[in-house]
Design a protein around this nucleic acid. Structure first.
Lengths: 195, 195
DNA sequence: CCTACCGATCGGTAGG
DNA sequence: CCTACCGATCGGTAGG
């Protein structure tokens, strides 16, 4: 029985992984359950033995990665870093997330509009909360004289948006390595903040 | 007859404007012609007296604004600015575009995946070309000693991605003015480039 | 996990 | 610009 359970669980995660890839490639609304079933190698009706609905798959993909980001930020609070070091650490964490789990990451940042309430409301309030924590760190860096007096709202917008832009690198022929992207992105955005 | 023609043209541009608003809000694939017709105030079938297809509307929205950006970049070449001044000018132009025509701008940067060939191929090659021109300007700024030696590919990615992120400001309660967004965005991203 | 099927909705057309 | 309608496809269920 534990074997069956394990088999079922891995089947579900295969489906979610393929779903994330398709949602990223074609968008949530333009992905049909039949397309997904073909990719997985079963009939459309059979998907429903593993997942409850198309909407539920989107929720699971988005909240799994969103929660990982959230947890990392909480863990960071205890580490006694300066505001500038914290921002650098968060940037590198997000860049690595986007490089390694780019399908989920991309679905989170672009397909969240297709969530339905209460998931939609949860997601947007969770994100607002997250952004406000980052803004507070930057404000501390300014008070600290570690950073220039740039509007924290805009600095956070620039940082998160730039990382989101790594999507283009994924779609390209990847002339540059993930390390080059990370180092240059961190240095451009951090130089713009430093005093 | 010229009155009729004008009336028809304005009807079409009303439809395109409403379409851009809906494509942005719900995504291209999730917007139905019936939804759009309701918003315009006519029957779905009547839309086809003004436009050829749903796909054609997407093409017109995207290429109109993409071409405007393209033309502006060409005009800039003649103005005898330094590389750093050019980048600042391009940034401010894009920020203003995103602030004033945010529905079209957002459709261009997020819904282009739903273009079909040959429009899809045209769009991506036009964009690659555009990005390469920006990269060349930044490379000149580095050779110039006006800018730090950051990878031009990444600098352009950060700049265009950050501007795209203004979408979040549009969705927010807009605690900050468009001018504040522009000035802070320019200063953060340009400071990170300057020597 | 499959066959067989449902009602709803899609983009679009014919004809006026 | 409308009524009436088309074939295709959608997400999902029943029953095995």
């Amino acid at each position: 029985m534990s074997t069956i359970k394990r088999k079922k669980a891995s089947r579900k995660s295969l489906i979610l992984q393929k779903a994330a890839a398709m949602f990223r490639e074609k968008g949530y609304a333009a992905t049909s359950m039949r397309d997904l079933a073909d990719t997985v190698g079963i009939e459309a009706a059979s998907l429903y033995n593993h997942i409850k609905s198309k909407a539920e798959m989107l929720q699971e993909i988005i909240f799994r990665i969103a929660n990982d980001a959230y947890v990392q930020l909480d863990d960071l609070e205890d580490e006694g870093l300066s505001p500038l070091q914290k921002i650098e650490s968060i940037m590198r964490f997000h860049i690595k997330m986007n490089v390694e789990r780019f399908e989920e990451y991309h679905v989170m940042v672009t397909e969240w509009i297709h969530l339905e309430d209460p998931y939609l409301a949860n997601f947007t309030s969770q994100r607002r909360n997250y952004v406000q924590k980052l803004e507070a760190i930057i404000q501390q860096g300014i008070d600290n004289k570690e950073m220039q007096p740039v509007l924290p709202y805009v600095a956070v917008l620039n940082i998160l948006s730039s990382i989101r832009g790594i999507e283009f690198w994924h779609r390209s022929r990847k002339t540059y390595s993930a390390e080059q992207i990370e180092e240059n992105m961190v240095s451009h955005l951090l130089n713009g903040l430093k005093k």
